[in-house]
Design a protein around this nucleic acid. Sequence first.
DNA 1: AATATTCTAGAATATTATTCTAGTCAAGCA
DNA 2: TGCTTGACTAGAATAATATTCTAGAATATT
Lengths: 207, 207
Amino acid sequence: MPAPPPVIDIETSPDRKSAILAAALAVFSEKGIEAATIEDVRQRSQASVGSIYHHFGTKEGIAAALFAHGIDDYWARLIASAAGKASAERTIHGLIAAHIGWIAEKPDLARFLFSRRQAVGQAYDEAIRQRTAAHFKTLFELLKPWFKQGVLRRLPAGLYAPLLMGPAQEYSRQWLGGRIDIEPRVAIRELSQAAWRSLAVDPDRRD
Amino acid sequence: MPAPPPVIDIETSPDRKSAILAAALAVFSEKGIEAATIEDVRQRSQASVGSIYHHFGTKEGIAAALFAHGIDDYWARLIASAAGKASAERTIHGLIAAHIGWIAEKPDLARFLFSRRQAVGQAYDEAIRQRTAAHFKTLFELLKPWFKQGVLRRLPAGLYAPLLMGPAQEYSRQWLGGRIDIEPRVAIRELSQAAWRSLAVDPDRRD
DNA sequence: AATATTCTAGAATATTATTCTAGTCAAGCA
DNA sequence: TGCTTGACTAGAATAATATTCTAGAATATT
């Protein structure tokens, strides 16, 4: 399989397109997508309206591009941390740690990614779905061995994602919204253990 | 504690305010909040611009009101189904069944509630937070006995919500987005059991 | 009934997204 | 070097749409 192209960092990359994306993220974070105006983005990015529209077509297009960027960045991290672990338990821990770690590191992008999905509009839904599905398939392959050999429970396939990442996802949303103050480190530990209990066959007799 | 006022049904209630909310929900669902125009809402609700602005102030105000309505409707259902159960296991099952059941019953409102939170804008954040916090506190009281008597694990308080509802929440999002086809009934069963495994003290020796 | 208050209407206005025209700039090439 | 092409940028002009305003109808209150 070809190595996925590295995800560029919109904060540091010097080209105008990245500058616009970074500015948009900042503005969207401050005022919300709807309230943010193109003029806001223009000022913050030092670009012109023409330039913005040349690159992204519409305001929604900016959001969609930002979204795609976020997805790729997030999943690259997730998959890197899940690959090559020696046990199912470590794989699960790695995933949850990566998820929560990423969110703590890039809270603005995370907030955008996880709370504004629909704001991007259904025109881009299919593209986003495909991107996510591809990433998730890669991840699923990493877990396959473990439930083939009876370490992880067999469940309807669609339920793995909710069970594995649901609690971390929910924790993250609340943490990002400032509605919970439990430290990421603690959450990683507790949520990993809980995920293990809910997914493992017979977790108490594992050693 | 005073009984909470019953949540009115915006679909059937005949007053103009409800009509506007119902129309807004429909339009928002079809095109997304941003793309939906006041004119769309006006046409579908048979109201006038003036009337809409009289009741809600801004377009965002409509979204906020819809959001508040959804929260109340959702939580009323959740709490009703968790109250008075004879065991912790049944309480948990009740909660998850209520969550998933509500979503399956009112998918448009659910989609709005769970996917557009940030679209409502931080001006209303505090109000929403308080509403949710109050509801959640009520729920938490219902669970207290069970972990006081050692049936449920003691964890950092903020992690109960993610563990309890996170997977159901994540399942719901995907189901609402058409990205998963597992039946609600099946999901309720599996996710209840999994939640029990992750929250109970020693679930395997419970009987 | 008289008055006040809430609600409705739709035209007028202001804001903001988007389009358009005219360039600039860098890369390739004769 | 000078020419050509395509990607990019600029900002004024336009169009779409949110919001305000004034006036009047309906409803409640005394």
